[in-house]
Design a protein around this nucleic acid. Structure first.
Length: 800
DNA sequence: GTTCTAGAAC
DNA sequence: GTTCTAGAAC
């Protein structure tokens, strides 16, 4: 095996097992034996990594999931009861009274941040001044003062919780997967919080570089590489992971505020749930390592006196939330037991449609709401419908409450709630995942009321996502819009979908008013709620039909699983489409043609690469190589003896058309990886000739580079489209793409018409009447390749 | 992307 | 009658 391939495999191994590795100094690793692997650092030294999953250092190193449950059961206060008294509250809130057994709630607080972000300092400072018993669990020292494993951390956390302590998890916890098992420690008596230390990368690197006594031995220049690498895979924590409280800290002042918050907690105190201090823009982009090295001496120090907007907001939010908690208003808050990400009850929060600006009669509207809810509740399983109004004195809420209580409805699943529909979780403690918007017919932001509030809270993401689904809406109709993961509403509140609804207008001062025609008005309003609840039902069904499976199960069989995964996505797509279709009469679509392109309605088969790129760990047996940026797989239907795909992992780049200057580094990496594989193949068979390139218009979602040998000897090459996609100018050589993106900011893409062109030999360019005849010719043609391919290394021939 | 198949081309 | 393609369905 060539030496470089060996290194490659080691690298691969590292990437797959990333979460189970921890850095250990060379001095320790001597004792580790065969499961260590060497890797080379920027500063030229070698470190070793210990593969804990293969060689656990102690019998308790890995803790099976089911034991977590057992341990939770043994925790103190497990049996605290919850009683619900519905609709009895004068304050228009659904009441949940928690019987206080007088014991304190424990906390698991996950610190989130790269090395140098100040996690250990944070914990130490809180522990020094806190009256609550804390345990700090630090992966860097957990194994007799040396670095240990995640499993050891989990074990120690559980032990500390059993002892009645609250726990700081002092490890990077940068992505969702790293956090998930610690979040599972939560239960009825254990809240799980996160404190995200979002300090500038330079600050973290600078601290890591300068520190001399760090427990994890992450010192010197190597820190820069490690911090940057880690930040690449960072995922901001979200409430829907199962965290009941998240504090974001962007500078020293924010950190100080968070330290104070936790330091002040006595054994009996608790903190309001929600998401505090989140800035809307992700600060994921980090300066390159080399750039850092140049600037390391002139780092802008973050001032501890500087009170930023984020701090102000964080402080305000905390104060406000604390004030509310202090009022001892027994708001309806979902208990942390429900917070496990898998356990969150699907909940639609919806405003009363048409009763505000559209002046629909409140009595009639309340009847329709209750009747439609009654119709849908049995179909919705455990899912909940929550009517929301901003004001305590809302007439519609009391009418609905009164009418609902007279009917035999499950009032735990249908109730009213007072609050800002965009902040029900962070400010009201209600868990919800879908909100309805009382939209305008143009589906535009602005206006007033709920529509303006929702568009404002969701940011521009919502408008774009809406535009991809529909341009306008007719009264009585609804349109389901999934929110992108970047949307602040999803991050802060856990909302995954917005359903726009348009109700009938009774206001003579607004266009298209119904002139008091309540026969028509009631019909349309009923239709509107039906459309809304149907939309919500489809989301609920989608989520329950396709629960997340364990990665183990998906690794068993590649091909099938790719299809299953695709199937799931298609199903989602189809259902969304079905909703759209069912609403078609109502959705005035003036850009029918471009709509598909805008919504990028990829079919199931077209999502296979995307799925692999997003979850390479699930496709272990098809992925030949992977990094943070790319995965390499064999084309499932190779059109030549050697045919690989280098797939970009970045989510937003579906194909060549999406490529811009900011993707240059990615393109270059894809090209380099392609070249490496060509080298490998040519070592095995020197006669192979390759091209690296992209299809101008790909059939499969997710930018992918074809690495394909030029003899095109394959039974899978069956038709004109196959042939022309690799041999006409529809195929864009990677070198040209790189050049074009560098010089003009994007790549040229050729027309799909080229795929229908005549069949010509890729060497001599002779034309042939059909595929079989062409293939017979190509098998024997030994002409030189066309001139243009001989330049710029478009054609990769093994050098003699 | 593939598979299937009606019907065009031979 | 057989081969091959193009378009629909998935």
């Amino acid at each position: 095996m060539p030496r470089w391939l060996g290194i490659y495999q080691l690298k691969l191994c590292f990437l797959y097992r990333y979460h189970y590795y921890s850095e250990v100094p060379n001095s320790i690793s001597k004792h580790i034996g065969p499961s260590t692997s060497e890797r080379f650092n920027l500063n030229g030294t070698t470190t070793r990594r210990f593969h804990h999953t293969q060689t656990p250092r102690s019998s308790n190193a890995r803790v099976p999931h089911d034991t977590l449950y057992e341990v939770r059961r043994q925790l103190p206060n497990w049996s605290r009861k919850t009683t619900i008294s519905q609709f009895s509250d004068q304050r228009d809130k659904m009441e949940v009274q928690i019987e206080d057994s007088g014991k304190a709630k424990q906390m698991v607080v996950l610190l989130i941040g790269p090395p140098g972000s100040g996690k250990s300092t944070f914990c130490d400072t809180v522990i020094r001044s806190s009256h609550r018993p804390w345990s700090r669990i630090c992966q860097d020292i957990i194994s007799n003062g040396k670095a240990g494993t995640k499993a050891q951390c989990l074990k120690m956390a559980m032990d500390s919780l059993k002892e009645g302590k609250s726990v700081f998890i002092d490890r990077c916890n940068l992505d969702k997967a790293q956090r998930s098992e610690f979040i599972k420690l939560g239960g009825p008596e254990v809240e799980v919080h996160a404190v995200a230390l979002e300090l500038p990368a330079q600050v973290c690197i600078s601290r890591s570089v300068k520190r001399t006594g760090h427990e994890g031995n992450l010192q010197g220049g190597r820190a820069a590489a490690v911090v940057n690498k880690m930040l690449q895979s960072k995922e901001l924590p979200k409430v829907n992971e199962g965290l009941s409280r998240i504090m974001f800290c962007y500078n020293d002042a924010d950190v100080e505020n968070a330290v104070k918050t936790y330091s002040a907690l006595g054994p009996m105190d608790s903190l309001p749930s929600g998401c505090f201090g989140l800035k809307s823009s992700d600060t994921k982009s980090q300066p390159g390592i080399m750039k850092f090295f140049k600037k390391v001496t002139a780092l802008p120090a973050s001032s501890s006196n500087e009170v930023t907007e984020a701090t102000r907001r964080a402080t305000e939010a905390t104060t406000e939330a604390t004030r509310k908690a202090d009022e001892k208003v027994e708001n309806f808050r979902d208990s942390p037991a429900k917070l496990g990400s898998a356990d969150i009850v699907p909940t639609l929060a919806f405003p009363s449609i048409s009763t505000a600006d559209f002046q629909f009669d409140l009595e009639k509207a309340a009847d329709i709401i209750v009747e439609t809810a009654e119709e849908f509740l049995p179909k919705l399983g455990t899912a909940r419908l929550v009517l929301v109004d901003l004001s305590h004195g809302s007439k519609i809420l009391s009418l609905v409450k009164a009418k609902a209580s007279r009917k035999n409805l499950d009032l735990r699943r249908f109730f009213t709630f007072v609050g800002d529909i965009t902040k029900l979780h962070s400010e009201g403690g209600l868990h919800y995942n879908v909100i309805a918007n009382a939209a305008n017919w143009r589906l535009k932001p602005g206006g007033g009321g709920v529509n303006a509030a929702i568009y404002k809270a969701a940011g521009p993401d919502l408008e774009a996502a809406t535009r991809a689904r529909a341009n306008t809406l007719l009264p009585g109709k609804a349109v389901v819009v999934p929110l992108p993961s970047t949307c602040p509403l999803q991050n802060a509140e856990g909302i995954t979908h917005v359903i726009h609804v348009l109700g009938p207008n009774m206001n003579p001062n607004r266009p298209n008013f119904l002139n008091n025609d309540y026969t028509k008005g009631c019909k349309t309003l009923r239709e509107a709620y039906t459309s809304l609840f149907e939309g919500f039902l489809s989301i609920v069904q989608d989520q329950s039909k396709f629960p997340k499976r364990s990665s183990q199960a998906t690794m068993s069989d590649s091909g099938e699983n790719i299809n299953e995964e695709s199937e799931r996505n298609t199903k989602k797509y189809k259902e969304d489409k079905a909703i759209a279709n069912s609403l078609e009469s109502g959705v005035v679509d003036d850009t029918r043609d471009s709509d598909l392109k805008m919504s990028k309605g990829w079919s199931s088969w077209a999502l296979a690469l995307y799925n692999i790129a997003m979850h390479p760990e699930k496709y272990e047996n098809v992925v030949l190589e992977s990094s943070d940026d790319i995965v390499v797989i064999n084309d499932q239907y190779p059109k030549a003896r050697k045919h690989l795909l280098v797939v970009a992992r970045q989510e937003s780049v579906d194909g060549l058309e999406d490529v811009r200057k900011e993707n240059l580094q990615l393109l270059q990496e894809m090209h380099n990886v392609g070249l490496k594989w060509v080298e490998k193949f040519q070592k095995e068979d020197a006669s192979l000739i390759f091209r690296l390139g992209y299809h101008s218009v790909p059939s499969m979602r997710q930018l992918h580079l074809h690495v394909i040998s030029q003899e095109f000897e394959s039974d899978n090459l069956k038709n004109k489209k196959h042939w022309n996609s690799f041999t006409s100018s529809f195929f864009r050589d990677s070198v040209d793409v790189l050049e074009e993106v560098k010089s003009q900011g994007k790549a040229n893409v050729a027309s799909e018409d080229l795929l229908k062109g005549e069949l010509r030999c890729n060497r001599c360019r002779s034309a042939h009447p059909n595929i079989p005849k062409l293939k017979s010719h190509v098998r024997i043609c030994r002409s030189h390749f066309p001139d243009h391919l001989l330049h710029n290394n478009r054609l990769l021939v093994r050098p003699e």
